[in-house]
Design a protein around this nucleic acid. Structure first.
Lengths: 114, 114
DNA sequence: TCTTGCTAGGTTGTTTTACAACATAGCTAG
DNA sequence: CTAGCTATGTTGTAAAACAACCTAGCAAGA
Protein backbone atom coordinates (compact mmCIF):
# COMPACT_ATOMS: atom_id res chain seq x y z
CA UNK A 1 0.00 0.00 0.00
CA UNK A 2 1.41 3.35 -0.97
CA UNK A 3 1.56 6.23 1.45
CA UNK A 4 -0.81 8.43 -0.48
CA UNK A 5 -3.29 5.62 -0.47
CA UNK A 6 -2.93 5.54 3.28
CA UNK A 7 -3.59 9.24 3.52
CA UNK A 8 -6.70 8.84 1.43
CA UNK A 9 -7.47 5.50 3.04
CA UNK A 10 -8.05 6.57 6.62
CA UNK A 11 -11.76 5.94 6.23
CA UNK A 12 -11.04 2.56 4.66
CA UNK A 13 -8.89 1.55 7.62
CA UNK A 14 -11.55 2.61 10.10
CA UNK A 15 -14.17 0.63 8.23
CA UNK A 16 -12.01 -2.49 8.42
CA UNK A 17 -11.36 -1.86 12.11
CA UNK A 18 -15.04 -1.60 12.98
CA UNK A 19 -15.97 -4.68 10.96
CA UNK A 20 -13.13 -6.55 12.70
CA UNK A 21 -14.99 -6.15 15.99
CA UNK A 22 -18.21 -7.70 14.77
CA UNK A 23 -20.18 -8.53 11.66
CA UNK A 24 -22.08 -5.36 10.71
CA UNK A 25 -24.28 -4.16 7.86
CA UNK A 26 -23.70 -0.98 5.91
CA UNK A 27 -26.34 1.24 7.47
CA UNK A 28 -25.25 0.22 10.96
CA UNK A 29 -21.62 0.89 10.05
CA UNK A 30 -22.59 4.33 8.84
CA UNK A 31 -24.16 5.15 12.22
CA UNK A 32 -21.11 3.75 14.02
CA UNK A 33 -18.77 5.95 11.98
CA UNK A 34 -20.93 9.00 12.62
CA UNK A 35 -20.84 8.38 16.35
CA UNK A 36 -17.06 8.01 16.23
CA UNK A 37 -16.37 11.38 14.68
CA UNK A 38 -16.87 10.77 10.98
CA UNK A 39 -19.98 12.90 11.19
CA UNK A 40 -20.19 13.74 7.51
CA UNK A 41 -20.16 10.20 6.17
CA UNK A 42 -22.93 9.46 3.67
CA UNK A 43 -24.23 6.37 1.91
CA UNK A 44 -22.83 7.47 -1.41
CA UNK A 45 -19.35 7.26 0.08
CA UNK A 46 -19.69 4.18 2.24
CA UNK A 47 -21.56 1.73 0.01
CA UNK A 48 -19.17 1.99 -2.95
CA UNK A 49 -16.27 1.60 -0.50
CA UNK A 50 -17.76 -1.61 0.88
CA UNK A 51 -18.27 -2.91 -2.65
CA UNK A 52 -14.65 -2.10 -3.46
CA UNK A 53 -13.35 -3.82 -0.32
CA UNK A 54 -15.37 -6.95 -1.06
CA UNK A 55 -14.27 -6.99 -4.70
CA UNK A 56 -10.74 -6.60 -3.37
CA UNK A 57 -10.99 -9.62 -1.12
CA UNK A 58 -10.81 -7.84 2.24
CA UNK A 59 -14.47 -8.33 3.07
CA UNK A 60 -17.08 -11.05 2.64
CA UNK A 61 -20.82 -10.54 2.98
CA UNK A 62 -24.15 -12.28 3.46
CA UNK A 63 -27.67 -10.96 3.30
CA UNK A 64 -30.02 -11.44 6.23
CA UNK A 65 -33.60 -10.23 6.77
CA UNK A 66 -34.17 -7.30 9.07
CA UNK A 67 -36.66 -7.52 11.97
CA UNK A 68 -38.20 -4.34 10.55
CA UNK A 69 -37.30 -3.02 7.12
CA UNK A 70 -35.42 -4.16 4.03
CA UNK A 71 -32.80 -6.93 4.05
CA UNK A 72 -29.43 -6.19 5.57
CA UNK A 73 -26.07 -7.02 4.02
CA UNK A 74 -23.67 -8.09 6.75
CA UNK A 75 -19.93 -7.79 6.22
CA UNK A 76 -17.07 -9.60 7.92
CA UNK A 77 -13.29 -9.52 7.47
CA UNK A 78 -11.55 -12.17 5.40
CA UNK A 79 -8.07 -13.31 6.50
CA UNK A 80 -6.72 -10.92 3.88
CA UNK A 81 -8.81 -8.15 5.39
CA UNK A 82 -7.27 -8.83 8.78
CA UNK A 83 -3.83 -8.54 7.19
CA UNK A 84 -4.80 -5.29 5.46
CA UNK A 85 -6.03 -3.90 8.78
CA UNK A 86 -2.73 -4.78 10.46
CA UNK A 87 -0.78 -3.05 7.69
CA UNK A 88 -3.04 0.00 7.91
CA UNK A 89 -2.51 0.18 11.64
CA UNK A 90 1.26 0.19 11.24
CA UNK A 91 1.26 2.80 8.51
CA UNK A 92 -1.18 4.93 10.44
CA UNK A 93 1.21 4.94 13.40
CA UNK A 94 4.02 6.03 11.13
CA UNK A 95 2.00 8.75 9.39
CA UNK A 96 0.81 10.02 12.75
CA UNK A 97 4.39 10.35 13.96
CA UNK A 98 5.48 12.16 10.82
CA UNK A 99 2.61 14.64 10.85
CA UNK A 100 2.90 15.27 14.58
CA UNK A 101 6.58 16.04 14.24
CA UNK A 102 6.02 18.50 11.41
CA UNK A 103 3.19 20.22 13.26
CA UNK A 104 5.14 20.43 16.50
CA UNK A 105 8.05 22.06 14.73
CA UNK A 106 5.73 24.54 13.06
CA UNK A 107 3.79 25.49 16.17
CA UNK A 108 6.80 25.80 18.45
CA UNK A 109 8.85 27.69 15.88
CA UNK A 110 8.13 31.24 16.95
CA UNK A 111 8.09 30.84 20.70
CA UNK A 112 9.24 33.85 22.73
CA UNK A 113 12.69 33.28 24.27
CA UNK A 114 12.78 33.24 28.13
CA UNK B 1 -12.99 22.76 5.91
CA UNK B 2 -14.81 19.47 5.63
CA UNK B 3 -13.55 16.35 7.28
CA UNK B 4 -13.01 14.44 4.07
CA UNK B 5 -10.93 17.31 2.85
CA UNK B 6 -8.92 16.96 6.02
CA UNK B 7 -8.38 13.29 5.42
CA UNK B 8 -7.22 13.99 1.91
CA UNK B 9 -5.50 17.17 3.02
CA UNK B 10 -2.88 15.77 5.38
CA UNK B 11 -0.18 16.58 2.85
CA UNK B 12 -1.62 20.06 2.43
CA UNK B 13 -1.44 20.69 6.15
CA UNK B 14 2.14 19.50 6.34
CA UNK B 15 3.11 21.78 3.47
CA UNK B 16 1.61 24.75 5.30
CA UNK B 17 3.36 23.72 8.51
CA UNK B 18 6.79 23.57 6.89
CA UNK B 19 6.33 26.86 5.08
CA UNK B 20 5.25 28.41 8.37
CA UNK B 21 8.73 27.76 9.76
CA UNK B 22 10.53 29.57 7.00
CA UNK B 23 10.16 30.79 3.44
CA UNK B 24 10.97 27.84 1.19
CA UNK B 25 10.90 27.03 -2.50
CA UNK B 26 9.19 24.02 -4.03
CA UNK B 27 12.17 21.79 -4.63
CA UNK B 28 13.48 22.40 -1.13
CA UNK B 29 10.08 21.67 0.33
CA UNK B 30 10.02 18.42 -1.60
CA UNK B 31 13.30 17.34 -0.01
CA UNK B 32 12.05 18.39 3.43
CA UNK B 33 8.90 16.30 3.03
CA UNK B 34 10.92 13.30 1.88
CA UNK B 35 13.16 13.55 4.92
CA UNK B 36 10.12 13.75 7.18
CA UNK B 37 8.54 10.52 6.04
CA UNK B 38 6.65 11.50 2.90
CA UNK B 39 9.19 9.52 0.93
CA UNK B 40 7.07 9.08 -2.16
CA UNK B 41 6.30 12.74 -2.81
CA UNK B 42 6.99 13.84 -6.39
CA UNK B 43 6.98 17.17 -8.21
CA UNK B 44 3.82 16.33 -10.10
CA UNK B 45 2.01 16.20 -6.76
CA UNK B 46 3.66 19.07 -4.95
CA UNK B 47 3.80 21.84 -7.57
CA UNK B 48 0.09 21.75 -8.44
CA UNK B 49 -0.67 21.75 -4.71
CA UNK B 50 1.43 24.90 -4.21
CA UNK B 51 -0.31 26.56 -7.14
CA UNK B 52 -3.67 25.66 -5.62
CA UNK B 53 -2.72 26.99 -2.19
CA UNK B 54 -1.52 30.27 -3.68
CA UNK B 55 -4.61 30.64 -5.84
CA UNK B 56 -6.58 29.94 -2.68
CA UNK B 57 -4.91 32.74 -0.74
CA UNK B 58 -3.03 30.62 1.80
CA UNK B 59 0.38 31.21 0.24
CA UNK B 60 2.22 34.08 -1.41
CA UNK B 61 5.34 33.71 -3.50
CA UNK B 62 8.27 35.55 -4.98
CA UNK B 63 10.93 34.42 -7.42
CA UNK B 64 14.58 34.71 -6.53
CA UNK B 65 17.69 33.62 -8.45
CA UNK B 66 19.48 30.48 -7.34
CA UNK B 67 23.22 30.47 -6.62
CA UNK B 68 23.42 27.49 -8.95
CA UNK B 69 20.55 26.53 -11.24
CA UNK B 70 17.21 27.94 -12.37
CA UNK B 71 15.28 30.57 -10.44
CA UNK B 72 13.56 29.52 -7.26
CA UNK B 73 10.00 30.36 -6.30
CA UNK B 74 9.84 31.04 -2.57
CA UNK B 75 6.56 30.61 -0.71
CA UNK B 76 5.44 32.11 2.56
CA UNK B 77 2.18 31.91 4.53
CA UNK B 78 -0.39 34.65 4.26
CA UNK B 79 -2.41 35.53 7.38
CA UNK B 80 -5.15 33.36 5.94
CA UNK B 81 -2.63 30.55 5.51
CA UNK B 82 -1.72 30.82 9.19
CA UNK B 83 -5.39 30.56 10.03
CA UNK B 84 -5.80 27.53 7.76
CA UNK B 85 -2.82 25.87 9.44
CA UNK B 86 -4.34 26.43 12.87
CA UNK B 87 -7.60 24.90 11.75
CA UNK B 88 -5.81 21.96 10.21
CA UNK B 89 -3.90 21.38 13.42
CA UNK B 90 -7.09 21.27 15.45
CA UNK B 91 -8.87 18.95 13.05
CA UNK B 92 -5.84 16.71 12.80
CA UNK B 93 -5.86 16.31 16.57
CA UNK B 94 -9.51 15.37 16.44
CA UNK B 95 -9.11 12.93 13.55
CA UNK B 96 -6.14 11.34 15.27
CA UNK B 97 -8.19 10.75 18.41
CA UNK B 98 -11.08 9.26 16.44
CA UNK B 99 -8.92 6.90 14.42
CA UNK B 100 -6.84 5.84 17.42
CA UNK B 101 -9.97 5.00 19.36
CA UNK B 102 -11.40 2.91 16.55
CA UNK B 103 -8.11 1.08 16.02
CA UNK B 104 -7.64 0.46 19.74
CA UNK B 105 -11.08 -1.07 20.00
CA UNK B 106 -10.40 -3.27 16.99
CA UNK B 107 -6.99 -4.47 18.08
CA UNK B 108 -7.91 -5.15 21.70
CA UNK B 109 -11.14 -6.83 20.78
CA UNK B 110 -9.95 -10.43 20.66
CA UNK B 111 -7.36 -10.44 23.41
CA UNK B 112 -6.75 -13.73 25.16
CA UNK B 113 -8.17 -13.72 28.70
CA UNK B 114 -5.51 -14.15 31.50
C1' DT C 1 -56.09 5.36 2.37
C1' DC C 2 -52.18 7.68 1.94
C1' DT C 3 -48.58 10.26 3.46
C1' DT C 4 -44.62 10.88 6.34
C1' DG C 5 -40.48 9.01 8.12
C1' DC C 6 -37.13 5.78 9.24
C1' DT C 7 -34.59 1.83 7.58
C1' DA C 8 -31.63 -0.22 3.97
C1' DG C 9 -28.84 -0.48 -0.13
C1' DG C 10 -27.67 1.17 -3.92
C1' DT C 11 -26.51 4.36 -8.82
C1' DT C 12 -25.08 8.50 -11.46
C1' DG C 13 -22.58 12.50 -12.57
C1' DT C 14 -19.19 15.90 -11.08
C1' DT C 15 -15.14 17.62 -9.06
C1' DT C 16 -10.81 16.88 -7.03
C1' DT C 17 -6.55 14.21 -6.14
C1' DA C 18 -2.18 11.89 -6.72
C1' DC C 19 0.57 10.44 -9.84
C1' DA C 20 3.40 8.88 -13.89
C1' DA C 21 5.32 10.71 -17.57
C1' DC C 22 6.89 14.26 -19.96
C1' DA C 23 8.80 19.12 -21.09
C1' DT C 24 11.77 22.93 -20.29
C1' DA C 25 15.74 25.18 -18.70
C1' DG C 26 20.08 26.73 -15.73
C1' DC C 27 24.34 25.29 -14.28
C1' DT C 28 28.50 22.04 -13.28
C1' DA C 29 31.77 18.29 -13.88
C1' DG C 30 33.87 15.18 -16.59
C1' DC D 1 29.10 17.87 -25.34
C1' DT D 2 26.91 14.98 -22.48
C1' DA D 3 25.44 13.33 -18.09
C1' DG D 4 23.41 14.73 -13.88
C1' DC D 5 21.62 17.64 -10.51
C1' DT D 6 18.69 21.62 -9.81
C1' DA D 7 14.15 23.76 -10.49
C1' DT D 8 9.41 24.42 -12.09
C1' DG D 9 6.04 23.19 -14.35
C1' DT D 10 2.12 20.50 -17.78
C1' DT D 11 -0.66 16.55 -19.39
C1' DG D 12 -3.31 12.59 -19.15
C1' DT D 13 -5.27 8.95 -16.23
C1' DA D 14 -7.38 6.54 -12.58
C1' DA D 15 -9.50 6.65 -8.36
C1' DA D 16 -12.02 8.95 -4.54
C1' DA D 17 -15.74 11.55 -2.22
C1' DC D 18 -19.56 13.34 -2.62
C1' DA D 19 -24.44 15.38 -3.77
C1' DA D 20 -28.33 13.99 -5.60
C1' DC D 21 -31.19 10.72 -6.83
C1' DC D 22 -33.68 5.99 -6.94
C1' DT D 23 -35.90 1.78 -5.09
C1' DA D 24 -38.10 -0.62 -1.53
C1' DG D 25 -39.77 -2.59 3.30
C1' DC D 26 -42.21 -1.41 7.17
C1' DA D 27 -44.71 1.44 10.89
C1' DA D 28 -47.52 5.23 12.80
C1' DG D 29 -50.78 8.63 12.38
C1' DA D 30 -54.10 11.65 9.94
Amino acid sequence: MKQTQLIKGVLEGCVLAIIAQKEVYGYDLMQALKHRGFTTIVGGTLYPLLVKLERNGDLASRTKPSPAGPNRKYYRLTPQGTQTLTEFSQQWTQLKGNVDQILTEALTHDEPQP
